[in-house]
């Protein structure tokens, strides 16, 4: 009898596995709707991009993207659950289905796009790798850094970029690569390294954690292109489109002058520019074609805001990060932010 019951348990387990396998076959949108929230992979704490406050509430530019997707899918930007991930864990978490979107200051590169079975749905921040040094070192340019000890974190492209930069310039260096950013900051702060390198947005965000933030300077060189954007699993075009167009909606809203403060007014306005009417769902069936309701973009703008609002709120000049818009301005204002039109 004992063995029989073990056998039946085995059969039960096998059927259980089968159930999991068949659940995988459903589309991401169906799965998300069924569970009632979007599972969003974020960083373990990068102020301005994804950071949890004392009460456990996540905020930031990357977090806003997940909230936008939740607003588009559920009409409620709060229906997001967050998974803090290390740089190393992030792709595995996404490809294993643990999360639905990875919005974690992740650089879009060809290797990642083609070899990891993932797709980048756009760019929500154009970044570049920079270097920070103590002012006392008297270094004005990265070309003077021959022989430096450099701290960074693993599981990113930064190790590759910094190696390339030093090789190109024929300089020698030592790399100390930590798993998490917090330890990088602590080691750099203790003087283990002469240089701290990561994306410039990251340098701005982490600087506040140093004991004397003002006695460090970010060098002018930008040694890499780091287009950061949301990532989804390959092979689910519908979900890919939802994420891509949620981002595009935020950028288009800024371009069209629609913000969280005036979108409600626009909704009741009878005379609207066609582009605005299409964006907020008064014309056409753009939402339905995504598998959503037609007021998807209206919900995004209403609850999350347009891209410019999100930027200024989390990383702009009035935040501790003090990042100027720079290349992240709209194309019409001298930047390179350019979203495909909704029509």
């Amino acid at each position: 009898m004992k063995k029989l019951s073990f056998l039946s348990a085995l059969c039960g387990a096998a059927m259980g596995f089968g159930a999991v396998a068949s659940a995988n076959a459903a589309t991401t949108l169906e799965a998300v709707k069924a569970k009632g929230f979007v599972q969003c992979g974020v960083s373990q704490g990068l102020p301005g991009f994804s950071n949890a406050d004392d009460s456990g509430k996540w905020t930031g530019l990357d977090v806003d993207l997940c909230r936008a997707v939740a607003a588009a899918v559920f009409g409620d930007a709060e229906k997001v659950k967050y998974s803090p991930l290390s740089a190393k864990q992030r792709f595995t978490a996404l490809s294993s289905g643990e999360i639905d979107i990875l919005s974690r200051n992740t650089t879009w590169t060809m290797t990642r796009d083609t070899q990891l079975g993932l797709n980048f749905a756009g760019v929500n921040y154009y970044d570049g790798q920079g270097m920070m040094v103590p002012t006392a070192l008297g270094v004005k340019s990265a070309t003077e850094l021959d022989g430096a000890n450099i701290c960074t974190n693993t599981g990113t492209t930064t190790e590759l970029n910094i190696t390339d930069y030093f090789r190109t310039n024929g300089m020698s260096f030592n790399l100390v690569a930590f798993e998490k950013a917090d330890e990088v900051v602590a080691a750099y702060d203790a003087g283990r390294c002469d240089v701290y390198t990561t994306d410039r947005s990251g340098l701005a965000a982490q600087r506040g954690k140093l004991t004397q933030p003002d006695s460090h300077v970010v060098l002018p060189e930008i040694i890499s292109k780091e287009p950061l954007g949301p990532v989804v699993r390959q092979g689910d075009d519908q979900w890919f489109n939802i994420v891509r167009w949620s981002l595009n909606a935020m950028i288009n809203a800024e371009e069209l002058g629609i913000s969280s403060s005036n979108v409600n007014m626009k909704k009741f306005q009878s005379k609207l520019a066609p582009s605005v009417a299409r964006l907020i769902g008064k014309e056409g069936k753009f939402g339905e074609e995504l598998g959503l309701s037609n007021d998807w973009a209206y919900n995004i703008i209403m609850q999350v805001g347009n891209y410019g609002e999100s930027y200024e709120k989390h990383v702009g000049l009035n935040t501790p990060l003090k990042l100027a818009r720079g290349v992240n301005s709209l194309w019409s204002k001298g930047g390179i932010l350019y979203a495909a039109p909704i029509r």
């Binding site: 190393k88 693993t154 599981g155 690569a177 080691a187």
Partner: peptide
Amino acid sequence: AVAIAYPELVSVFAGTALNQVG
């Protein structure tokens, strides 16, 4: 040791290399 940047197997192979190769 991966936590404090000692380049042992988990750090250098399952960390940096895995991230490049996937």
